[in-house]
């Protein structure tokens, strides 16, 4: 099924919240999935896989801390949503040339929307390099060099984030990012479902505040 970007944003936001992230981080997860879908990349699918992987993992195990210039997490694998938001919060430092290296990171492509949010408004190019493949966010769009499949990998040993003056590479192969496979959409719906309150007699009776009949 083809989704509107609005629907992708809303479902992914609710799913991220349902997985245990805070509302603020969930809002950014929704925007990240939407952005990837808009670029023709499987943002919602990657998000679904990430939420499954991290389901039940406490925030404290996922949150990055910096040791000797490298971001690591207590649990051993960084969450790209939490790390991505933290990168955005440090946008000025990164834009001023402070390179960042992330240790082992799950679904690294989910970092791209956050890197774009740093790069685009400042007219910069920012490169994400993982396993020999480089994805560069430029004000004119995305380019990549290396193995496109690596971008979709469930985990990268390291991801380096650098300002690039002369991005090299080719445009990404375009596909329909708004098409969400049924497996992914059912995972997202299941997580979103956790944010819905079970009906009670009181809620059924109150409804949205209307009467039941429209015959007047």
């Amino acid at each position: 099924m083809i989704w509107s970007l609005n629907e992708i944003d809303a479902l992914c936001r609710k799913a991220a919240k349902g997985s245990g992230l805070s509302w603020g981080l969930a809002e950014e997860a929704g925007k990240a999935a939407r952005w990837l879908a808009e670029q023709g990349m499987p943002g919602p699918t990657l998000l679904a896989q990430l939420l499954k992987r991290n389901d039940g993992t406490p925030y404290a195990d996922l949150v990055p801390s910096e040791v000797d210039g490298v971001w690591t997490s207590a649990g051993g694998t960084l969450c790209p949503l939490i790390a991505g938001a933290a990168l955005c919060d440090r946008a000025e430092k990164i834009a001023n040339g402070a390179d960042v290296t992330l240790a082992r990171t799950a679904f690294p492509l989910l970092l791209a929307p956050y890197a774009d949010a740093i790069a685009r408004p400042r007219g910069l190019c920012i490169a994400l390099t993982l396993q020999g493949t480089t994805l560069t966010l430029t004000p004119g769009g995305l380019v990549f060099a290396g193995d496109a499949v690596a971008l979709l990998s469930p985990v990268a040993k390291t991801v380096s984030i650098t300002i690039e003056s002369q991005p090299k590479g080719a445009a990404l192969p375009i596909r329909n990012g708004r098409e969400i496979p049924p497996e992914a959409s059912s995972v997202l719906h299941a997580f979103a479902h956790r944010t819905y309150a079970p009906a009670t007699e009181a809620s059924r009776a109150a409804g949205a505040g209307a009467g039941t009949s429209d015959n007047d």
Partner: peptide
Amino acid sequence: LLRLPQHRH
């Protein structure tokens, strides 16, 4: 915010 993600919104 890294410590208090509940206030991000």
